[in-house]
């Protein structure tokens, strides 16, 4: 029987079809005959490995674009991706890793110069819910997380995730106790907040209030060192992006935000101080500071100037020094404003 199969090489589409059949089998709850099930699961793993080999090639051969296209087309013709995502917890570790790499690769495969994965995901956007919730499952988080990061390369998918209720959960996922999972969630969060500029700008302007309230209280004021450090770095990246300039001007006009950033400037960690400075300078450089911002800066002027006087980074950085000099000038020149 096996010899018969081997004699005729399967096409990539055959492999996809067979994988799909086996996935449907795997999805059903296990019946009495366990031994047969194990066999089938092993076969499923083998098929997934083969899909991976077609897409990535192996040590002997490079991937063939024709075969990749065939595979991709067949894969998205029916609901194979959904089946694969749903069955992932039933697979063993090696098969999970293979499946993750297959899904990742498929997001970039073009058929007739079209990313058909994007179309498929738009029609099956609820799959994102499964992937995001994966962060709550220690065993699945790294697999689902890696898939998710690939899927949000599609702008429409990223928009869905940004606007979904799940966005709030990221603030917790980032602080999960397992470092590998928390770091994965942080990487996904960063990708969401920086990859598609216009979508992000749109999201931030619409969701400014709750987003930055959460961002400030949960991330920037977290008790977790690594959360604070990553958050203040990402905040700098977001605010300094020119597509987010409207959000930036709004952010640097709030005295609450200023207070938080000034606290970060006082941290004992040099790295956090430096990242905080890159955000703080925006408050200082703002040519039209609201009166309360000016008030705070004037009240803390001597402390701030003293802080900046011995504020150095290890390696020389002209830009940093120039920024610092400008911030110092701005603060030194401030006159208290009366609220008119």
């Amino acid at each position: 029987m096996k010899g018969l199969f081997k004699s005729k090489p399967r096409t990539p589409a055959d492999v996809v079809r067979q994988t799909r059949d086996l996935l449907i089998y795997a999805q059903r709850s296990p019946d009495s005959r366990e031994s047969k099930r194990e066999e089938k699961m092993a076969e499923l793993s083998k098929n997934i490995r083969e899909l991976k080999c077609i897409l990535y090639g192996n040590s002997e051969s490079e991937p063939v674009s024709e075969a990749c296209a065939q595979l991709t087309q067949e894969f998205f013709r029916e609901n194979t991706l959904r089946l694969l995502i749903m069955c992932l917890p039933k697979l063993n570790l090696e098969a999970r890793k293979d499946a993750t790499q297959v899904v990742a690769n498929l997001q970039r495969q073009q058929v007739h110069s079209k990313l058909i994965a994007s179309d498929y995901l738009e029609a099956n956007i609820d799959l994102m819910d499964v992937l995001i919730q994966g962060y709550g499952d220690t065993d699945m988080a790294l697999h689902y997380g890696a898939m998710l990061r690939e899927c949000i390369r599609h702008q429409s998918v990223a928009r869905y995730v940004l606007e979904s209720e799940h966005m709030k959960k990221f603030f917790d996922y980032i602080q999960l106790p397992n470092f590998d999972i928390a770091a994965d969630a942080a990487a996904t969060f960063k990708e969401l907040m920086t990859r598609h500029k216009s979508t992000v700008a749109d999201f931030l302007s619409k969701n400014y209030d709750w987003f930055f309230a959460e961002y400030n209280s949960k991330l920037l004021e977290s008790s977790n060192y690594i959360t604070r450090r990553q958050a203040v770095k990402l905040l700098g990246d977001i605010l300094l992006d020119r597509s987010n300039s409207a959000v930036m001007t709004r952010y640097v006009s709030s005295r609450d935000n200023l207070r938080i950033l000034m606290n970060l400037l006082r941290e004992s960690s040099k790295s956090i101080q430096i990242e905080a400075f890159h955000v703080f300078k925006l408050f200082a450089a703002n040519q039209n500071k609201p009166a309360d911002i000016v008030g705070i800066l004037v009240a803390n002027r001597s402390k701030l100037l003293r802080l900046f006087a011995d504020f150095k980074i290890d390696k020389e950085d002209e830009q940093f020094e120039a920024d610092k000099a400008q911030v110092v000038r701005e603060i030194a020149a401030l006159e208290p404003k009366e609220l008119s």
């Binding site: 470092f179 590998d180 770091a183 060192y225 040099k270």
Partner: peptide, 23 residues
């Protein structure tokens, strides 16, 4: 010591991920 590394911890993320997924 993370305070000594200037990166966005991507290297650590990758290392810990690798170490927990290899068996």
């Amino acid at each position: 010591d993370l305070d000594r590394s200037r990166s966005d911890f991507d290297a650590f993320r990758r290392e810990t991920k690798t170490m927990s997924l290899l068996s």
